[in-house]
Design a protein around this nucleic acid. Structure first.
Length: 472
RNA sequence: GGCGGCAUAGCCAAGUGGCAAGGCAGAGGACUGCAAAUCCUCCACCCCCGGUUCGAAUCCGGGUGUCGCCUCCA
C-alpha cells in the first residue's frame, strides 16, 4: 500500500518495521465536551484505515489516547463545578457512545494521559540528559534550538516561525517556540509529584510517552487531523526523537478539514455541530458514508444537501444488498451459464479494483465507485428472467460484506422478522392482488408504508423491507 | 512575511501523458394493474495564458481565484 507521508510530502510505500505488523497511533480527543463532526471525520477515517490494513493481512495494533488533563479540562471542570476526573469519565463515556453509533471500533489500547505520568516524567528526564530540556521555577521547557530538525514536518524554520508569532511570549524562555513539558501546579489543580515541581504534564509530551509505551520507540503510522501538524506533531517528533535518537514515526498521515457551509466550524460562528446533536436528525451510517465519499486529505464541506445526496447514494447500495439477500433465499445451486460466468469474472475484477484504489493512498472515493458499478451489474442480474443461482449470487453478496468489513456503512435490513399481524396483512394483499382488487391491495400497501414497511412486487413475488429511519 | 493545499458537469467527486470513474439531481425510454425497486439512453473537453510532447485535466512557467497553517483546535 502507498500512503502519503506528510513528512516527505510524497506517497510512499507502507513498509512496516516488523514484517506483517503495524503499530499505529492516532491523537484522540480531549474529553471536555461532546466531539464535533470534524472530529468524527478523523475517527471514522482512521477506523477505516485500521480496518483496511487488517483486511490486507497486517497484524495492526491501534492506539488512540484520551487527553484527560490540560487547560481545557481544568477550565471546563471549573465552569461546571465538578472534578477533572469526573469530567473525563463523562465525556469518555459520551465518546464511546457516539463513536459506536458511527461504527467506529474500539482501539486496541485507549490510554488516558493521567495513567502515564511516570512514563512522562521518565521521558522528560531523558530530555534533560540529552540537554534538550531546561527548568524555570518549576516549569520545564523544551529547548527547540537544541534540536536541529525542528520544523521539518511542518516545513517551517525557527526564524520564520518567530516572525509570525501572534502571541505574547514568555520572556523567560530561551526561544519563543520553546514549549512546556511540565507545568508547575496552580492551587486547586490536579497535580503529581515530579523532580521539578508538583504539577502536571504539558499537552505534547503525553502523546510521545503513550505512543512509545504501547508501540515502542518507532511507530509505523502516526495519524491525526491536519491542524495537529504544527505544533503538536512537530513537538512530538522533537520530544521522541530527541530522547531516543530514533525515527519516531515512519509515516505521518493527516486528515483534511471538515467545513460547514463553506466555513470553518467554530463556536463563535455558531456552526459548531456535535455528533451527539446530529445523531438526532441524521443516520450515523450516512455520515460515515459521507466521510468516505471523498479523499481523506481533501477538505470536505458538510451541508444538508451533501447529507441528502449521501443518504440516497447509500440507500442504493443497501437496496442492492437487500434485494440480493431476498432473492438468495429463493434460489438453488446450478452450473453457471455464460452470462453468470461473466458476472463472476467481473466480481474478481472488482475485488482487484477495490484493493488497487485503497492501496493508492487510501482512495475510498474510488473504492466506492467499484461498489456502485458492481451493484449495477448485480441489479441487472436480479432482473433477468432466466432466474438466478445461489452459487452466483452468494459470492457477489459476500463481496459486499467483505468490503463492508472495511468500510462499515451498510445496513442489512431483511434479516429481521415481521410481526404476525404484518405478515397476515401481506398475505391478505397478495390475495387481493390475485382477485385484481387493486383498491384493497393498494390500501394495505399504503398502510404498511405508514408503519415503516415498504412492499415491492417482483416477478418472484412480493418483497418487503423496513424503511430507513432518519436517525440511528 | 513564511509554509502548504485546492480549482473537473446543476451539486458532490475520482482520475499524475493516449478518446473524462462513480453518486445525487434532470430528460427520454423499458418493466409494473398502479407503484416501488431496477435496467437502458442522454447530459463536461477539465479556471485563464503560454510552453514541453505525436498526444496533457494530467508535466513546466506565469496569472487569477479560493482555503488552511505559523504555540486553543481533528
Amino acid at each position: 500500500m502507498k500512503l502519503y507521508n506528510t513528512l516527505t510530502r510524497k506517497k510512499e510505500p507502507l513498509e512496516p518495521l516488523k514484517a506483517g505488523k503495524i503499530g499505529m497511533y492516532a491523537c484522540g480527543p480531549t474529553v471536555y465536551d461532546y466531539f464535533h463532526i470534524g472530529n468524527a471525520r478523523v475517527f471514522i477515517l482512521f477506523d477505516v484505515l485500521r480496518r483496511y490494513l487488517a483486511y490486507r493481512g497486517y497484524d495492526v495494533t491501534f492506539v488512540q489516547n484520551y487527553t484527560d488533563i490540560d487547560d481545557k479540562m481544568i477550565n471546563r471542570a471549573g465552569e461546571i463545578g465538578i472534578r477533572v476526573d469526573e469530567l473525563a469519565d463523562k465525556f469518555i463515556q459520551a465518546y464511546l457512545e457516539d463513536t459506536a453509533a458511527l461504527g467506529v471500533r474500539r482501539a486496541d489500547h485507549e490510554p488516558c494521559a493521567t495513567w502515564h505520568i511516570a512514563d512522562i516524567i521518565a521521558l522528560i528526564e531523558k530530555l534533560f540528559e540529552k540537554g534538550l530540556a531546561y527548568e524555570l521555577e518549576g516549569d520545564v521547557y523544551y529547548d527547540v534550538q537544541a534540536f536541529p530538525r525542528y520544523g521539518l514536518l511542518s516545513g517551517q524554520n525557527l526564524e520564520e516561525l518567530d516572525m509570525g508569532s501572534r502571541v505574547e511570549v514568555d520572556e523567560r524562555k530561551k526561544h519563543p517556540m520553546d514549549f512546556v513539558l511540565w507545568k508547575k501546579e496552580k492551587p486547586g489543580e490536579p497535580s503529581w509529584e515530579s523532580p521539578w515541581s508538583r504539577g502536571r504534564p504539558g499537552w505534547h509530551i503525553e502523546c510521545s510517552a503513550m505512543s512509545m509505551h504501547y508501540l515502542g520507540e518507532t511507530l509505523d503510522i502516526h495519524a491525526g487531523g491536519q491542524d495537529l501538524i504544527f505544533p503538536h506533531h512537530e513537538n512530538e517528533i522533537a520530544q521522541s526523537e530527541g530522547a531516543t535518537g530514533k525515527t519516531f514515526a515512519r509515516h505521518w498521515v493527516h486528515a483534511g478539514y471538515l467545513n460547514i457551509n463553506q466555513e470553518k466550524m467554530s463556536k463563535s460562528l455558531g456552526n459548531f455541530l456535535t455528533v451527539r446533536e446530529l445523531r438526532k436528525k441524521v443516520n450515523p451510517m450516512v455520515l460515515r458514508f459521507f466521510m468516505l465519499s471523498s479523499h481523506y486529505r481533501n477538505p470536505i464541506n458538510f451541508s444538508e444537501e451533501q447529507i441528502e445526496q449521501s443518504q440516497k447514494a447509500l440507500e442504493r447500495l443497501n437496496t442492492a444488498v437487500d434485494n440480493m439477500e431476498d432473492r438468495l433465499a429463493r434460489v438453488d445451486e446450478a452450473p453457471p451459464d455464460r452470462e453468470e460466468e461473466e458476472l463472476l469474472g467481473y466480481l474478481q475484477e472488482s475485488r482487484e479494483r477495490f484493493i488497487d484504489a485503497m492501496d493508492d493512498d487510501f482512495n475510498t472515493a474510488d473504492a466506492l465507485a467499484v461498489l456502485f458499478e458492481l451493484a449495477r451489474k448485480a441489479n441487472t442480474y436480479l432482473n433477468r428472467s432466466q432466474g438466478q443461482k445461489k452459487n452466483v449470487l452468494l459470492p457477489v453478496l459476500d463481496f459486499f460484506r467483505e468490503t463492508d468489513e472495511v468500510l462499515g456503512f451498510l445496513q442489512e435490513r431483511t434479516q429481521e422478522v415481521l410481526e404476525e399481524e404484518i405478515e397476515a396483512l401481506i398475505q391478505k394483499r397478495e390475495e387481493a392482488r390475485r382477485q385484481k382488487d387493486w383498491a384493497t391491495a393498494d390500501g394495505i400497501r399504503d398502510e404498511l408504508k405508514v408503519r415503516g414497511i415498504i412492499l415491492e412486487d417482483t416477478p418472484q413475488g412480493v418483497r418487503w423491507k423496513i424503511a430507513v429511519e432518519d436517525s440511528g
